[in-house]
Design a protein around this nucleic acid. Sequence first.
DNA 1: ACAAAAGTGTTCAACCTACACCCATGT
DNA 2: ACATGGGTGTAGGTTGAACACTTTTGT
Lengths: 235, 235
Amino acid sequence: MKLEENPLVEYFQVAIASSLVLFGFDGEELFILLSRKSHEPFKDAYILPGKYVKPSEGNDAVMHELLNERIGVNPDSIYLEQLKAFSKVFRNPLGRVVNIAYYALVKLTPEVKKHSNDFENDWIPYNKIPDLAFDHNDIIIYAKERLKRRVKRRPVGFNLLPEEFTLSQLQALYEKALNRELDKRNFRKKIFNSNLIIETGNQTDPNLYRKVSKLYRFDEEKYEKMTLKGYDFLF
Amino acid sequence: MKLEENPLVEYFQVAIASSLVLFGFDGEELFILLSRKSHEPFKDAYILPGKYVKPSEGNDAVMHELLNERIGVNPDSIYLEQLKAFSKVFRNPLGRVVNIAYYALVKLTPEVKKHSNDFENDWIPYNKIPDLAFDHNDIIIYAKERLKRRVKRRPVGFNLLPEEFTLSQLQALYEKALNRELDKRNFRKKIFNSNLIIETGNQTDPNLYRKVSKLYRFDEEKYEKMTLKGYDFLF
DNA sequence: ACAAAAGTGTTCAACCTACACCCATGT
DNA sequence: ACATGGGTGTAGGTTGAACACTTTTGT
């Protein structure tokens, strides 16, 4: 059917865009990926990475493209979830644009850092997000709250930490995401009691750290269960 | 700017619709409001109540219209929240339609029942939802999960119960929403310890029930706080 | 008399919180 | 020697879960 023949033609004049709040953790700090606008308007301003979505495209497919091409991470190996639609009637002179926002979690390896930087993106510390164009600050606020809830109720470390990690790294992740300090002994008790992690027998490289520490990995089966059902406890 | 001059014209060919999952509680049972389709295709099939949104309209405004006109409840006195966008590339022959779904909670008084029935809507028991057109069953599944989470973490009774209510009604609401039975004594302890409700001094009408019982109301100040911050406990 | 719903306490187990010191290593 | 970060246990309070009987009133 041609658009002109559509009885609801007056409705079919909206565009979809999808923006992504991508959280990355490097073992010490939490970051959010921001894009720098290369053209006017708002040249050099930061925005969330995003794309317009054609009527024939699925949102998920567009997000996968974005992750693959402009960010350099494999979409199948990360956690990706829709946040919600931000659908205020914008002052965008081009027309009504609905932003279907996503959030995702990624291990922040040097390779990912490099690739995403090549595409005019910067990893900005979680607590130092500047003013962004449009309503993108609202989207980030919403995403941070979602992350906080997820961290409290479900395991998220698998998506943000390397295969093998130390308990200190895990704790640092929780502290950054929840924005408060946790007691080391109580944290360890809670994690061990959950049976979520397994000692690998390996240790950190003695050349890198002052003192070696034990490395752990997630019990994937248990992790899957908790991702679906949540913890029995709360952080 | 005219649409034909828009450099992104190929993107501006999407329509927005908004559907509503409206939960109602009558003191005993939880219901969801469904509309009956009066025309082909899918004549007589149930769908969620909803509307198309014009490019110039805000989603919230359209939801308010829907609630006012077709359902007969004052949008300012209920709880209304966006769920998320359902944006699969539909097989809808008219084109790409993004459904920005909402959920809302309402006290199911006889007046509301009557008004919404006048507009080809039926209140269907929560656990007896039939197959719906489009992906509306998916939306309902998502909404039920959202309600469950809200019930566990935040007070929702204020929006679903009459001004004054009995503890048995409150407990019935929690049991229906969570889909499991709760121990009466433990339930009362938990509720009383939260200081969320206040004894009004009134009792149920002796002509209506076998046995009179005490009526309570919410402590609005406390309620507001918990709506923002959540309980300190979980159900 | 019986069916239906209101109301009421205690005990045990599990969990949460607060809290301090020793050890190994690199500088 | 000192600074850094890894690693470990206990005690007290709070909370959650399981559990049964009495009272009132309508039929």
